[in-house]
Design a protein around this nucleic acid. Structure first.
Lengths: 132, 132
DNA sequence: TATTGTTATACTCTATAACTATA
DNA sequence: TATAGTTATAGAGTATAACAATA
């Protein structure tokens, strides 16, 4: 799906990259956004609201992701005593281990995708995407 | 959905860009890949096989897209007399008009998304993405 | 036998709307 | 009344498998 338009070029590469990540994560049985959730939880306990914002998805999506993570005992949620409407979501030890696996998989995709780019080019790409 | 990993940055921007294009195309009632199909057909008549390759999708997806385009009389398909297994797919006049509309919508997204980029930066982005 | 296109079907991702419980 | 989270459900988008027509 090639084209000469920059928006389409970016969309195309993004879809390809996303598909590649999904494929890499597929081995773990976890979806793309579930993997992203693990990464956010690595920064510390979070409410579901904060996950909704960071993932940019509907609340119901976060519920489904957390159900999956709890089923696999990769994360836990418990009531926040300070506001019993909220949940405190946390990684378990198994979750931290799973995260390490996914980081390794991501590194492989990274190397594979950007193999033909110089150090300067990857820095440049990062800068430019930051402005988009 | 921010992150410091380049693969994730690219995936994120790609998904955002795709979503933005879908939204822009939404006004026409046509999907993203249907719009892409119109663009490919603008280059001249095509077989369904060639569309499959360029869109990078399953044959059944192309069938669905062409059913939609034919229903809206934006394209036609007819048997190729040289090989009666093949279809020759062509834009109609209405299809050409619809294409012009979508190009205009894409240009708007282009301007919006890359407003903060210099001429040099857009050229750089194009070059780098070409290597990914 | 291999290729082109079609159909039926199912799976993933995501959002909407109506709901419960807390504040 | 407003907010956090949940459920049920529906709609995209896409792939798989079995198929018919033609080469």
């Amino acid at each position: 799906m090639d084209t000469d338009r920059l928006v389409l070029l970016l969309a195309q590469h993004g879809m390809g990259t996303t598909a590649r990540i999904r494929q890499a994560f597929g081995a773990t049985g976890l979806s793309f956004k579930t993997g992203m959730t693990l990464m956010y939880l690595a920064e510390g306990p979070a409410s579901q609201q904060s996950l909704i914002e960071r993932l940019g998805v509907d609340p119901s999506v976060v519920v489904a992701i957390l159900n999956e993570l709890e089923r696999d005992t990769l994360a836990t949620r418990r009531r926040d005593p300070a506001d019993r409407r909220r949940h405190i979501v946390e990684l378990t030890e198994a979750g931290t281990a799973a995260l390490a696996t996914m980081e390794k998989l991501l590194s492989e995709v990274d190397r594979e995708l950007f193999a033909d780019l110089s150090e300067a080019e990857t820095a440049e790409l990062r800068t430019i995407l930051g402005k988009v």
